[in-house]
Each structure stands twice: as structure tokens, then as C-alpha cells.
Design a binder for these strands. Structure first.
Lengths: 137, 137
DNA sequence: AATGAAATGGTGCGCTG
DNA sequence: CAGCGCACCATTTCATT
């Protein structure tokens, strides 16, 4: 599938994509254009080795709230070390994925999370080793 | 920074990157080449809207083990719905990020996780709403 | 969806600070 | 050693069938 090939390497020429899927370069280009138009392909990016530049610690933070936190997204997005934020069903209200340079910086992020309205507590899960982080096809 | 600009849009011409950072196109190209060489930039990919093609449910799975699970990465990687797998310090041994079409498929993934050697239990956190999933600069 | 032509950007090189 | 400017070539993009 075109999506899978582009996930592996988005610099592949359309001619090569076409050959892989039994089409001409132009036709492959047209299909990809439509995938972008429909929003299936959101954008073209680079994958960065976070550890290689000053982000050696990954952690997940379970955030408890004492009020409705359905509108806290913007406040959490203002903390640059927060990579993901989800409202969850389960043992907490919100789950964050956080990357920092070290444990001192992680502690500082937790302090800033506590400053968000409605946050009543956090439980932090530190990552010891990452088996893989990949993109699903 | 070049990294940030390429994360936003990796199709930007080098000439434009150069202008944004006060360099010529060729010089910008050279810097990016070195970042790739050093492994800071791992690859160029596309960001896919998972919901837009049949992956509407996101969940995190806390996996308990009754033996050492430090070598289970390959077994977990063999389950295509598992997007991330980390060894963690905290309330479980391993944390997975999983995406499936629906709750029935999620249940099936949990069954396959149980088939991995050493797995003695799971606790599943289902995502109700994603505030954001972004790339850190 | 294929083809071919025109426009654009990527790539290598000699030169300079 | 890093950056510049130019020339060349591969790729994207578009009009036509």
C-alpha cells in the first residue's frame, strides 16, 4: 500500500511508488494527492531521535482531577515537554506522555501539571527501556 | 531551528529553510545531511490519521509478568496493533500503546498479549478523547 | 490512468572567508 | 571547515489524450 511505503520513506520518488503498486508515476502522485486532500495523510515530517538531543527520559503521567478536565487540553499543550495528552476511562482522568532531559526536569514538569486547574494528583510511570515506537500501517 | 521546521513540513525546499535560518540553500542542505548522518533525523515519514482509516480506538495496556520480560520485545512487535512497547518502573512490567478498529478487536489483541511468555495479567486504559499527539521540538 | 513537456527543487563542485 | 553560487540533473507537476 502507498501509505505503508511512504511511512517507511517519504522521500521515495513517485515513479518508484508507482512501480511498487503497478501504476505510472503520475497516477501514483494523483492518489497520494487525494489522500492528502482527504486528510488521511496529515503531513510529511521527520522522525527525530529524542535521546540524541537532550530528551533522555520518557514518562507517562496519570493525572487525577477533582473537577471536569475536558477543557484542560490547551493548558496541558502549553507545557512543551508534554508530547501526548488523552482523556481516559480507568484509574485516572487524563494520561500524559512526557519527555525530559532528566529526572530533575521531569519533577519540574509535574509541578507545572499541578498548576493546571482541577488537577488533584499525579502518578508517574518512568520508562526504563523502549522496545519500539513505530507507525502502524 | 531546522529540526522544528522540518517536523512541521518536511517538503519545504532547502532554499526556504536556508532563508528562515539565515543561510543559503546549499548550506542548509549540508546541515540537514549531517543531522541524518548522525542519526538525529532518523527518517522522513508521513503522519497518518489513524481514525480515518479503521483505527478508531486507542488504548494503553499495563502488562504484568511473572518472569523476566526484558526479552519480550520481539513477541510484542509481532502484534501489528501494538504501536509502542516500553519496559517501565511502576505498577507493571511493560506498557503498551494499542490501536484497533473497535473494542472487539481490542479484546482480541489482549488475548494475543496473554499468549506472550511471562505475561500474568493486564490492565487496560481506554482513551476517550485525545487532546493532542504532537512531536516535540 | 498514461504520456510527455515545462517548471521546480535537489545535488555536486570549485571557490571563498 | 562551513558557507556560497552556479550548473546540471532528477523529480514533481500539469495539460492532453
Amino acid at each position: 500500500m502507498l501509505i505503508g511505503l511512504l511511512q517507511e520513506d517519504a522521500t521515495r520518488p513517485y515513479a518508484e511508488l508507482g512501480k511498487a503498486v503497478g501504476l505510472s508515476g503520475g497516477a501514483a502522485h494523483e492518489r497520494v494527492r487525494k489522500l492528502r486532500e482527504r486528510g488521511v495523510i496529515r503531513r510529511t515530517t521527520i522522525e527525530v531521535d529524542q535521546a540524541a538531543l537532550g530528551r533522555g527520559v520518557t514518562a507517562y503521567v496519570l493525572v487525577d482531577g477533582d473537577t471536569w478536565m475536558g477543557d484542560s487540553g490547551d493548558r496541558l499543550a502549553a507545557i512543551p515537554e508534554v508530547e501526548e495528552a488523552h482523556v481516559i476511562a480507568g484509574p485516572a482522568s487524563v494520561l500524559l506522555k512526557v519527555r525530559t532531559a532528566g529526572t530533575a526536569e521531569l519533577q519540574d514538569v509535574l509541578r507545572r501539571v499541578f498548576d493546571v486547574d482541577g488537577v488533584s494528583g499525579t502518578k508517574t510511570i518512568v520508562v526504563l527501556e523502549t522496545f519500539f515506537e513505530r507507525s502502524l500501517k
